[in-house]
Amino acid sequence: MSRALRFYRSAIGKKVVMAVTGLIGIAFVIAHMTGNLLAFAGPEAINSYSHFLKSTGELLLVLRAVLIVAVILHVIAAAQLTIQNRAARPMGYVDREPQVSTWASRTMRWGGLLLLVFIVLHILHFTTGDLKPAGVFSTADVYGNIIASFRIWWVVLFYLISMIALGFHLYHGAWSSVRSLGLRQPSPNPLQRRVALAVAAIVWAGFVAVPVAVFVGLVG
């Protein structure tokens, strides 16, 4: 058996895959969120940014491929670990009180599933344009697509709920991925996660800002 496969076979190997792909995801959402904020700078800014991205050609393709592979690996590893973890306790407790685990950590699976659904719908919505909640879509006018969609209350609501899920996912993931990779220095209170909280809060706020601003009429 190859070294890599053998490494992956262990739970720690899978956690390493989840951590690395998760960190790629975190880097991506931070960049994505920063780009989104260009909506506040007006139609030209965000449309030309979008045009710039598309003009990079192969680079964009590679980036997209990396992201898709990362998501797939992340999901497969998560599914395999979930199966392993469930099997490790065939009979549960009648009475079980979580002591310190965060709500975020306990909802990684369901929250992750919601995010997967979100990612698919989001791509169909803003990338391919197959979903047109407002009835219109233009590849050249990203700004127009944003304004049209986020005037609809249930679209905004779906995005808000998904971003809450993302925030929680990051709150646990940003912290645990670094620990899973064995990169953290010992600490007197290892459960403390200030950096993760900041990452989660900033990403959440940045993503939520655009739909909310559009909906209440601050933008557009």
Partner: peptide
């Protein structure tokens, strides 16, 4: 057949 670590902290 123990499970893996999710860093719950429990």
């Amino acid at each position: 057949e123990f499970g893996g670590c999710t860093l719950y902290g429990e």
